[in-house]
Simulated scan of single mutants.
Amino acid sequence: MGALTGLKILDFSTLLPGPYATLMLADLGAEVLKISSPTRGDIVADYPPFIKGSNLSANQAWLGRNKKNMFLNLKSEEGKNIIKKLILEYDILLEQFRPGVMKKLGLDYETLRKINPKLIYCSLTGYGQSGPMKNNAGHDINYLARSGNMSYSGRKSTGPVLTNMQIADMGVGSLHSVVGILAAVNYRNNTGEGQYIDVSMLDGLIPFHAMEGASFLATGIESKREETRLNGGDIYDFYKTKDDRYLSVGALEPKFWRNFCKCIELPQLIEKEITLENILEIKEIIKNTLKGKTLSEWMDVFKGKDVCVEPVLNMKEALMEDDQIKAREMVVEVNISNDNDLKIKQMGSPIKLSKCPVKYSKSGYPLGYHTKEVLVKLGYNEDEIKKLLKDEII
């Protein structure tokens, strides 16, 4: 029995934010049914590479793990009727369309809650359901830019930098949807009432300003690139080694700084006050020192020391070789959904529960795989299903 066994979720999302949110819920035991268009592709689910010996992309095998999925034409009346039948059982819904799309389809919260008052309905968008930008298109880079976070990230010489991490999509969209849904479930358990959840990825990036945002709102002084403790204005930074690899140095607290200086044989820096005026001079000394050894040599020096120094690992080193990541079981082997003889390595769940640990039952199935199974459960017979197929409803 999973932590979320008993929760049944209809997933209308595509790309990454919604699918990763429902993956987290599915890994924890929720029953997730993804609704996909029979004619419209999903650039994440369809993105290569495809797993050898299978018709599954690596993304679909991962994001679809522990889920079922079906094809359904939501523009057809019969397609809408099928959703209205499903909503009696799947009483949590996540959708990722622009505001107003589900209303045009007749599948908005107000319509569906009349069928099931206990419905929890989560809308995940870039800019939310209100405000002048609510209908704007956007991607991760746009939300990061609009939030103000990129105004003091990166280097003075280059400006903002790309990270190849979907910070807004996953760190905000996915996680806030999960938190919102589980909060609404708890409220429903206490009151018997469902509710509507409005998650905006731009909204969620505002608290990412963290200490700098709190300081600005109190003083009106804006942070600038390479002038704060965490954006290059301190020794907290990345440093190149002799073999053109990189070390991350986070030795901010006095005890870590003291140990770090001893390890790199610069004890004269221990008591030296670090200010914005002299930081470039001190960092230049550190840079020149760290260039003197290879990454491996430095890791031998720092081994067992309390210094907050770690190597910048490549993907192979992190996902396949790192002892800590292995110990935490963050890369798991999962059976390919429709072939018990095939297995694939995937990124695991970061949530560790002692009583009901995550189970990785099956990788994702090809889109549309469970369409007939779902319809049979709803009472459709073979002839009716054939007609739905002929009419391009499934």
Rank of each mutant, 00 (worst) to 15 (best):
V307Y: 09
C308H: 12
C308T: 03
C308N: 04
C308Q: 04
E310R: 08
E310S: 13
E310V: 13
P311S: 01
P311H: 03
V312C: 08
V312R: 00
V312S: 03
V312T: 07
L313H: 00
L313M: 14
L313F: 00
L313K: 02
L313I: 00
N314P: 02
N314L: 01
M315V: 02
M315R: 05
K316G: 01
K316N: 11
K316S: 12
K316T: 08
K316M: 01
E317L: 13
A318C: 06
A318K: 00
M320D: 11
M320Q: 14
E321C: 07
E321P: 10
D322L: 01
D322V: 00
D322R: 01
D323W: 05
D323M: 09
D323V: 01
D323Q: 12
Q324I: 08
I325L: 14
I325D: 03
K326F: 06
K326D: 09
A327T: 07
R328C: 03
E329H: 05
E329W: 09
E329P: 02
M330A: 08
V331M: 12
V332S: 01
V332D: 00
V332I: 15
V332C: 05
V332R: 06
V332M: 02
E333C: 13
E333I: 12
E333Y: 08
V334L: 08
V334T: 12
N335S: 13
N335E: 14
N335Q: 15
S337D: 04
N338I: 11
N338P: 06
N338C: 01
N338S: 04
D339T: 06
N340T: 11
N340K: 10
N340S: 14
D341G: 12
D341I: 15
D341S: 15
D341F: 13
D341H: 13
D341C: 07
L342E: 03
L342S: 09
L342R: 07
K343I: 07
K343E: 15
K343G: 02
I344V: 15
I344L: 12
I344Y: 03
I344E: 14
I344T: 09
I344Q: 14
K345A: 06
K345Y: 04
K345D: 01
Q346R: 06
Q346A: 12
Q346Y: 04
M347A: 09
M347V: 15
M347I: 15
M347T: 14
M347G: 10
G348N: 11
G348T: 10
G348Y: 01
G348C: 13
G348L: 10
G348S: 14
S349I: 06
S349F: 04
P350V: 06
P350D: 04
